[in-house]
Amino acid sequence: MIRAYTSQDKSKLIELLRQNTPEYFAASEEIDFVNYLHNDIEDYFVYEEDSKIIGCGGINYFPEEKSARISWDMIDPKSHGKGIGKKITQHRIHHINANPNIDFIIVRTTQLVYKFYEKMGFELQNIEKDFWAKDFDLYEMRMKNKNG
């Protein structure tokens, strides 16, 4: 089940981030994620199975650029490869596609998972070495909003 994030989910999401550190996130990113949860959430979703959160991901909007950015995606490592990331990403893409004021969907990820987004239809736009932290490069990708 995919549902909207509530503040009661915060500690579970921080634990999910820790489970994906250091493989997919640098330890230094936890501070950024906590700040995001406190200050920068616009639309954020969690994926639950048997009342346990095993995935999450957000959307931030940039109306002046007519874009939306998929942000802070993570899946419980025990559930990697089961299609949960795909479901959460598709859910957000459909959510964004319903907004005719958005022309592009952006994702900023790393070299570790950019191929996943490529399979989802995103195209690589830019790479910046060691952007997030040492050995965590920025891979900026985008796709056209189907209704934009």
Rank of each mutant, 00 (worst) to 15 (best):
W132Y: 14
I88C: 06
F131V: 13
E123H: 13
Q19T: 10
K87N: 12
V46N: 04
D43I: 04
I75C: 04
T109L: 04
P100S: 08
E48V: 00
A27T: 15
Y114I: 06
I70P: 03
K82Q: 15
D50F: 00
L112Y: 10
F116G: 07
K119H: 06
P63G: 04
T6M: 00
V46H: 03
K10M: 10
E30A: 08
K86R: 15
E140I: 12
A98V: 05
E49L: 05
E65A: 05
V34N: 14
K87I: 09
K146F: 00
S7P: 02
S79Y: 14
F25W: 01
I102C: 02
K82I: 13
H91F: 01
K134M: 02
Y139P: 13
L37E: 10
E30C: 01
N35H: 12
Q8A: 06
I53C: 01
K87R: 15
I14A: 12
R108S: 08
G55K: 11
N101G: 08
I53G: 00
M1S: 13
E123R: 15
L124C: 05
P63N: 13
A133F: 12
P77L: 01
T110Y: 06
K86D: 10
E118D: 10
D103Q: 13
K82P: 08
D40L: 14
G55Y: 06
E29G: 09
N20R: 13
V34T: 15
F62V: 03
I96A: 04
D43R: 13
K119N: 09
L112D: 10
Y114R: 11
K82S: 11
I106D: 01
D73V: 14
D9H: 09
E64I: 15
T109P: 07
I93K: 04
D137E: 08
E128S: 08
D137A: 00
E65C: 08
S67Q: 03
M141V: 11
G85A: 06
G121V: 00
H91S: 06
T110C: 07
I75Y: 06
G81A: 12
S51M: 07
F104G: 00
K144V: 05
Q19G: 02
Q19K: 15
K115H: 07
R18E: 14
I31E: 10
V34S: 07
A27L: 05
A4K: 14
M74P: 08
I84C: 01
K87L: 04
I127V: 00
I102D: 02
D103C: 04
F136Y: 15
Q111P: 01
F62S: 05
D43N: 15
Y61A: 03
V107Y: 03
Q125L: 12
Q125G: 05
G148M: 14
M120K: 07
